[in-house]
Design a binder for these strands. Structure first.
Lengths: 161, 161
DNA sequence: GTCATACTACTCGGATAAGAACTGTCCGAGTGGGGTAGG
DNA sequence: CCTACCCCACTCGGACAGTTCTTATCCGAGTAGTATGAC
């Protein structure tokens, strides 16, 4: 069970978009250069975020990506779900249906105790991620490294010409 | 992020081993037949459980697998870890090290706030799985379906000749 | 000088390969039990 | 009848292909700004 590396990229990129000037946008190429990542592949992840309605994209010169809504209303779970898809990590295949006691009219994903335990665990995981917004993350970073927003903006401004 | 299907097989098989008579063992082939699974592949998962010290295996006729310790001392997390490996789902790649503010003497897996959030979520997931033992699971099943242990034993006894 | 127009550079977006991990299968090493021959 | 030995069937264990998912890359559609030429 390995989570896609795109999740990490997406989270850091969204956090980065938190510090973009209002009305501005950041291109996938610049965001990739900031972390030294393959630009085309990061673009793919940003597309997934756009499809999920987390960021908006504008093509053409001076285009790029920006957050679709204020960081207070974007949870870490939103970003993770956008990249990894909505499906659970553990998926009950209905083993018991093929067993000697199996019934066709039972939804084993609901009634099977193994499945219930796994779902309860994933629910706890999800609850933790849903309780953390992009704004919380941003505030944590700004508290630990106060100069980061200004230095980041400056870095992107320097890349422009 | 999709969990290996072997986790489900391993959990159900361990639960099944809970109802084995003391001193007896169940072969991978019989366990596989019980759920209509590919025997060789289930054997592979059981080997992983044996390497983790959750079950013990004995070769030869009348051999097979049995639990290595009482079900009260085997958590669901133990089984999941044995199959999926000890690594976390989210692994911090140290993106910030390649960024303009990156330092070589910092352990970003510890200090990065994104990484911290993800680890906190996985910890909650793990805590939930570690709080559930195989004995709890067994008791739940016996409460819901009281006849299951006897019928299961009977099924395996019938397969013997 | 002003306006319309064509052009160019730049951006996202989806379609297209390479690699890794999971899934599934096979055969060999080792073991325990049962049959058999001898005492 | 009892015992020691040999053979065989059975089981796990690790080595070997097939398939799906993740990772990585490329080129085309569309857009905004700019230069250019006519009025």
């Amino acid at each position: 069970m390995r989570m896609s590396e795109g999740v990490e990229w997406a989270l850091h990129s969204c956090l980065n978009l938190t510090w973009v000037e209002p009305g501005e946008a950041r291109t996938a190429a610049r965001l990739a250069a900031f972390y030294d990542l393959p630009a085309a592949y990061l673009n793919k992840q940003l597309q997934a975020l756009a499809r999920a309605g987390i960021v908006t994209s504008t093509p053409g010169p001076r285009g790029g990506f920006r957050l679709a809504r204020p960081p207070e209303r974007i949870t870490v779970l939103d970003v993770v779900t956008a990249i990894e898809g909505p499906g659970d990590a553990f998926r009950c295949s209905g083993l018991l249906r093929n067993g000697p006691e199996g019934r066709d009219d039972v939804d084993y994903a609901r009634s099977c105790h193994v499945s219930q335990t796994m779902r309860r665990a994933e629910l706890a995981w999800r609850r933790e991620l849903a309780g953390q917004t992009l704004a919380d993350l941003r505030d944590d970073v700004e508290r630990s490294h106060p100069g980061t927003p200004a230095r980041t903006r400056e870095w992107f401004a320097r890349q422009r010409p």
